[in-house]
Structure formats: C-alpha cells, structure tokens
C-alpha cells in the first residue's frame, strides 16, 4: 500500500533540494546527522542534489547518546564523502541542568534537540548553508518531535514520506545496512526507541495514517481493514494534540491584514 517508485521520488526530492537552496541564494546545505535513518537519507539526497563539496554534516552527540550512533553518523558521511564535524553538546546541556535540574528525561531530550538546533543554525551562518530538516511524515503527523528543536529547518525534504517509505528509499539510495537494520530511535536517552515511545509499530502506524489522512477513510473503514478502534482513536488524538507543532503561533488579529491570517504570500515569493 505504501510502496513508492524510488527512482522518481529521488528525482523529485533531489530537484526540490537544489531548488530550495539555489532560489534562496545559497549553494550549501547543512544536515544534523544523528546516525539514524532519516538524517542519513537527507544527507544522501543533499549530496546528490548539491555535491559533497556543498553538503556539510554536523554530528552532535550528548553523553547519553548510544556510541554506535556516532559511528553510524561517521559511516554515512564517509559513504557520501561529505565533510563533517563532531561537536559534543554535553557540556552546554549539562551546564543548564546543573543549575536547573530536570524532572523528567523528556526535558533533557528536548533541551538536547534545541541545543542541536542552535548549533546547526549557528553553523548555517558559518557555512553559508541552509538547514535541511530530517522530519518524516509519520513523526510530523503524530507530533513526535521537539518544537523548535529537530522540527526546525529551512525545508523538510522527506516530510511527506512515511517512515516505512523512508526505509524503502534508504535501501534504494544504498544507505549502510547497519543503519537500516537498527530500531529507529530519537536517541534522547539510553534504550529509547520510536516505536516503544509512540506505542505502535511504524508499519501499522503508517498504514493507519495513510488511510486516515491521504485516503480520508473513516473509523469504520479502518476497523474493517483490521485495526482496533482504541488504537485509531489514540492516533487521531496524537494528530489533533500536536497540531500546534505544525502551524505558526496564532497572531491576534487587529488590523485589516494580519500576518499568519490574511497576509497571504508564499515563502517562495519572488524566488
């Protein structure tokens, strides 16, 4: 159901990345490479679109990150011959929590995501590059991201591909097998997996999302397809509750034309 014609998807995404970078007056893209699947795919696409010379990777481990993540990140940079730098964010993150101790691991995870964003955007200036985001459609829809953290980017090349489709594209692009084979994880704390945290396997989540969002099936039709009502409702609730992450903050309207409401122009205005 979610199979894609990878050659065509690659062609479209490569063309879109080139377009986004060049029309905004840049030549370079910068990618935060985590050692996971999504950033590996985005790095590969940027390299194909712009060349290795115009693609730059930042590997931003925290002291609790899995050691293999760094190795996998380096492996994917080596595979695509993309220059990279490793910047350990532990000191910056820990300095904050030493003063204001965290109550939950989620706080540390969010702080790490925002610290990485902060470093990426600083390096985007140093490297004269736009930040290519690595969010996929599954996590965008259920809100499995840190607002102003990993969701912050100039553009999201794989933001309309479900996670299972990112796997398919990764194989097509020749992403190292060790990255494809491991369990997807935001790597915010030891042992964390996406599926464990979201509470459902991507293969099921993606089908339900696809039926619900792209095909506009109602609950009854999805139940007939083999999924339980409580699961469908839980996913729907995740979508509704995370809508704030997918829109700009509301502006309180006072004037005839208001930013975010009826001052209506694309980002690509005159680009």
């Amino acid at each position: 159901m979610l199979k894609i014609k990878c050659e065509l998807v690659e062609k479209i995404l490569v063309s879109a990345i080139r377009d986004s970078i060049h029309k905004n007056g840049f030549k370079n893209a910068i990618v935060g490479v985590s050692g996971g699947l999504d950033s590996a795919v985005v790095l590969a696409l940027c390299q194909k679109a712009l060349g290795a010379r115009h693609t730059f990777a930042l590997l931003l481990p925290y002291r609790a990150s899995a050691p293999e993540s760094l190795e996998h990140g380096k492996a994917v940079c080596a595979k695509y011959k993309v220059p990279f730098e490793v910047i350990d964010i532990s000191a910056a993150v820990d300095a904050y929590f030493d003063r204001f101790p965290a109550d939950t691991p989620l706080q540390i995870g969010n702080k790490c995501a925002r610290e990485r964003m902060s470093v990426l955007y600083d390096f985007s200036v140093r490297k004269k590059a736009l930040v290519a985001g690595t969010s996929n459609k599954s996590e965008l829809l259920v809100g499995y991201s840190t607002q102003f953290g990993d969701s912050a980017a100039a553009f999201l090349p794989i933001g309309d591909l479900y996670k299972t489709q990112v796997f398919e594209l990764a194989s097509h692009l020749g992403i190292p097998e060790a990255i494809i084979a491991k369990k997807p994880s935001a790597d915010l704390w030891p042992g964390q997996t996406d599926e464990g945290e979201i509470g459902i396997a991507y293969k099921d989540l993606d089908i339900i999302l696809h039926l619900m969002i792209d095909r506009r099936w109602d609950e009854g039709e999805i139940i007939e397809h083999g999924y339980a009502l409580p699961l469908i409702r839980r996913i729907k609730k995740m979508i509704v509750n995370s809508q704030f992450k997918r829109t700009m903050p509301p502006v309180i309207k006072l004037h005839p034309r208001t930013v975010g409401i009826d001052f209506r122009y694309l980002r690509d205005w005159n680009k």
């Binding site: 479209i12 063309s15 879109a16 377009d19 986004s20 553009f155 690509d268």
Partner: peptide, 8 residues
C-alpha cells in the same frame, strides 16, 4: 515544472 514552497 519547478517548486513553490515545496509543491512541485
């Protein structure tokens, strides 16, 4: 052809 805000 081309893109406008990601729409190709």
């Amino acid at each position: 052809v081309g893109f406008e805000d990601g729409i190709g």
